[in-house]
């Protein structure tokens, strides 16, 4: 038996909206430590890793480890039927072929349940090592969204370079070129409006803007986003989802032929 209840159901709605265009399907792996997902996009250049801890839920029970194959477009259709203020409970019997989603309005006068058909999905589980990065940058998630959106209108790829001067995003295209530089800035009173640059060594990598732009669909989940960069390795774009866990996007760099 698996059961997970979250009072702030809007978090689940936002999570699925952030993922559904990038990954069409994937396994929700549930265990007594929580719920996780690893899924690649269809072109296999990026990876989504979602971790939701059991203690972040208002109630969590998982008697047996299970992999629940989810079609995210279908899950999104069901979650759109939940109110933003609703409490959401996920439930499945052991070896079930469906996941039940129960929505409760705050006033308790409306309760609905939907069953989502589960799929059988073969998925490769990748071992992602914990590692030190050459540069880690925390910035307002709205700022990241604006940068990648603006640059997407100019070019297809972005060169991200982190130096002691700051972090620079550069692109070029038919209309011309663009450079946006952010400096370490802890002046704003609100921590979520600050920019932190932790640089161990300068690094410069090129990425496809289309994907970086797609990752910014997770902006409603967190006020800040963390970018981690190391030479020749995928960038990590990480959103902390309150006390519940995190969603991380990994994107392979573009390298010279």
């Amino acid at each position: 038996m698996f059961e997970a209840r979250i009072t702030q159901g809007s978090v689940l709605k936002k999570l699925v909206e952030a993922l559904k265009e990038l990954v069409t399907e994937g396994n929700f792996d549930v265990s007594n430590t929580g719920l996780s997902l690893q899924a690649m996009d269809s072109s296999h250049v990026c990876l989504v890793s979602l971790t939701l801890r059991e203690d972040g839920f208002d109630h969590f029970r998982c008697d047996r480890n299970m992999a629940m194959g989810i079609h995210f477009g279908n899950l999104s259709k069901i979650l759109k039927c939940a109110g933003n203020e609703d409490t959401i409970t996920l439930k499945a019997e052991d070896n079930a072929d469906q996941l039940t989603l129960m929505f409760e309005a705050p006033s308790q006068d409306r309760i609905s349940d939907f069953d989502l058909k589960l799929m059988s999905i073969e998925s490769e589980h990748l071992g992602i090592p914990d590692q030190d990065y050459s540069a880690e940058v925390k910035l307002p998630s709205s700022e990241y969204q604006r940068i990648v959106r603006d640059l997407t209108s100019i070019g297809d790829t972005v060169l991200i370079s982190a130096t002691k001067e700051g972090i620079k995003f550069s692109t070029s295209g038919d209309v011309g070129t663009a450079n946006i530089t952010l400096r370490h800035n802890t002046t704003p009173e609100k921590p979520e409006e600050q920019t932190f640059i932790d640089l161990k060594e300068p690094v410069a990598l090129t990425f496809a803007l289309r994907y970086l732009n797609n990752f910014s669909k997770a902006t409603p989940l967190a006020p800040q986003v963390k970018l981690s960069l190391t030479k020749d390795l995928p960038i990590v774009v990480e959103y902390q989802v309150g006390e519940l866990g995190s969603v991380r996007f990994y994107l392979a760099p573009k390298i010279d032929d």
């Binding site: 690649m40 990748l126 496809a208 995928p234 994107l251 392979a252 573009k254 390298i255 032929d257």
Partner: peptide, 13 residues
Amino acid sequence: MKQKPINAFFGGS
């Protein structure tokens, strides 16, 4: 420029 698949960077388990 080319792009390696993401699973080339992480070992499978």
